[in-house]
Design a protein around this nucleic acid. Structure first.
Lengths: 259, 259
DNA sequence: CGTACCTAGTCGTCTAGAGGAGTTCAACCA
DNA sequence: TGGTTGAACTCCTCTAGACGACTAGGTACG
């Protein structure tokens, strides 16, 4: 049986934090294992002799820390251990494209996950200011916009949106839902743009409500954002890809020369 | 005057979310500028005709998203524009070390910030299992542990801990608090280990309470973690550096060859 | 046997109020 | 002039209760 301890109202730490501390400690020490259910609100109210909102504040704190997830009608559960994946630095090795694998598929399989893609949407739009700038286009030039969601073992882990100049994508499967083996990078090379290098800009933040919904995560889970620009051998940007990843599902690995 | 709109109680989105949506939109569109104060709880209660807790729930949502910060007794303010810094891919260019600049100093200055370092601690410890593995040492071999906190414009933005094998650091300023011009990488090269490349592993998560305290951030702010391993020209790992950065303060930039 | 319903238990949301504590600034007093 | 006080404003925490909605399990009915 879990030792819920007691709160001390004379100390300056407010009761809801003390309750959160006690539960957090149990989680960190494994006495509340991943997947296990926390005591219900009613039990905590009774045990500590506090009001409902006080207990809810405590649990809210744990939720924003990403330690627990609440399920309406069922209970509050300790978040299960993150399925750490790894973006190898040979992510864009040409050999993978030769083998007909897209980067995500290659990685997810290497990490022992069953990869999946859904919610593919392909549209033709006028470039936004940011996209035009990154692609070296004039604002409002046309770009093919490809958005999709990636899954690992059936769970959403990443949403991605690619922007390719219409001048490159025209007449290729890039504008189709199914791009064929090797993904869009293979098709860009087919179109005569040999890829030379990529730049990636990585940062992290809290997800917007839309992103939370698409990635099926709670408000306590941060996301990694990655903006990748692909350049061909002439130095021309040929694609910009904007991705939002569930932070706990990824480790990005890079190799940097010392020069 | 800010248009606070109205909430629609017939729709299925709860009032507190609708209020959060309205405020979030104002922030995203710049009508509530960084640093600007949000309408007070009292004003929002009056305007929307809801209870106190409802307004607080809405603001709590924005706080956990990191969009606003509350200051007791003063008000709620839009988080100031992230002082976006940038880890240029020439971060470890030898010329910086030749110029006597450490990587952080060079970057922060380039981004127009006043850099600072404090809380420097240098100890000699037995390597943990993880560190020993990364450095190719036997567990319990001695390493020099250097931890420090970096500041930009006086605000903490990063805490970092480096591990260097004692065999390399012995008899050099690496084991001193002041390592001299160019930082520890310059000293490692002085010791005959010419640096060849680095690997970096990037991920993001929510901070622990200790990290929150050291970085002076609230519970709604994620951190970027970066584990860097430095290799010399013989392929030997010569340093492991474990850093925790305030996510909103950093954009990491990488260049990846297409191979 | 299978469906529909009921019920207990769970979390989600909201109300209406209370006292507390940090901040600011103007008015007051020495 | 300079320091203190107090009021008004802010957000912080808590109470006690209400209704709603989702889940799971049992039960009664067709």
């Amino acid at each position: 049986m879990l030792d819920l301890g007691t709160i001390d109202r004379s100390v300056d730490r407010p009761p809801y934090r003390q309750i959160a501390d006690i539960l957090r400690r149990h989680i960190e020490r494994g006495r509340l294992a991943p997947g296990e259910q926390l005591p219900s609100e009613a039990v905590l109210i009774e045990h500590y002799g506090v009001a409902r909102m006080t207990v809810r504040e405590a649990i809210k704190e744990l939720r924003t820390e990403g330690l627990v997830v609440a399920q309406h009608g069922k209970g509050v559960f300790v978040r299960s251990a993150p399925p750490v994946r790894r973006l190898a630095s040979d992510r864009f090795a040409r050999r993978h494209r030769k083998e007909g694998k897209s980067a995500f598929l290659a990685e997810a399989e290497a990490a022992g996950h069953v990869p999946g893609v859904d919610q593919i949407r392909v549209t033709n739009e006028a470039a936004s200011v940011e996209v035009a700038e990154r692609l070296g286009l004039k604002p409002r030039e046309r770009v093919i916009v490809r958005s999709r969601r990636y899954l690992a073992d059936g769970r959403p882990v990443e949403i991605a949106t690619s922007y390719i100049p219409e001048s490159i994508a025209k007449g290729t499967p890039i504008a189709e839902v199914n791009t064929g083996p090797g993904g869009i990078y293979a098709r860009i090379e087919d179109a005569g743009h040999e890829l030379a290098h990529f730049t990636e800009e990585v940062s992290a933040r809290m997800p917007s409500p839309d992103e939370r919904k698409a990635l099926e995560i709670g408000s306590g889970s941060p996301v990694l954002t990655l903006v990748r620009t692909a350049f061909d051998t002439s130095g021309t940007p040929v694609e910009v890809c904007d991705t939002v990843k569930v932070a706990t599902s990824f480790v990005l690995e890079y190799d940097v020369p010392a020069q």
